[in-house]
């Protein structure tokens, strides 16, 4: 662990009771959703993690509790550090408080997580789909959403695929 990062991690694990995991020198803090805003607030104000780099999620389907991990990466520009924060969420109507109040850049990142995983962020100012069409059904990056693979056309199946393919009107 980086010597600049370890006092920060120790202080945070004591105060918020979160679990710290290390892999290849990177620290992930795992904590429940209700403590997230407090943690991000103190990261920004006390430990000078000025920038929210990224918000994404991982789907552990078919595991249900927790099914999702919402993953935040925060960066300290002045100290050159990155910290990963993970929030486990259950599969049934997953929801977590928004980080928009602390980092305004969370706005689009959280909209993307909502669009792709169906995780809602309470208190978010603009919870619409961002990437997929507004009337799209389902959340594409969930593991139970099909990839949508279409059969590739070769000589042996040329006619069957052509028959299935939608034809445009002139």
């Amino acid at each position: 662990m980086d010597e600049k990062l370890s006092p920060i991690v120790t202080a945070l694990t004591e105060r918020f009771g979160c679990e710290a995991q290390e892999f290849r020198g990177e620290i992930s803090l795992i904590l429940p959703a209700e403590k997230l805003t407090g943690l991000l607030q103190s990261l920004r104000d006390e430990f000078s993690f000025e920038q929210l780099v990224d918000v994404t999620a991982v789907d552990y389907y078919p595991q249900e509790a927790p099914r999702f991990h919402v993953v935040y990466h925060v960066r300290s520009l002045s100290q050159g550090l990155v910290l990963c924060v993970r929030v486990p969420l259950d599969g049934n109507a997953p929801s977590t408080p928004t980080a928009e109040g602390v980092y305004p850049s969370a706005n689009w990142y959280e909209r993307e997580v909502f669009d792709m995983f169906g995780v809602t962020f309470t208190g978010h100012s603009d919870m619409r789909r961002i990437v997929m069409p507004a009337d799209w059904q389902g959340h594409p990056l969930r593991k139970d959403f099909p990839l949508g693979y279409e059969e590739v056309q070769f000589t042996f199946n040329f006619d069957t695929v052509t028959k299935r393919k939608p034809q445009p009107k002139e």
Partner: peptide, 20 residues
């Protein structure tokens, strides 16, 4: 022409599904 390397939910497998 045919969807290329992106054979998935988001991409039309060839623009000939939409226009001639």
């Amino acid at each position: 022409s045919c969807g290329g390397v992106f054979n998935n939910y988001a991409i039309f497998q060839g623009v000939d599904e939409i226009v001639p």
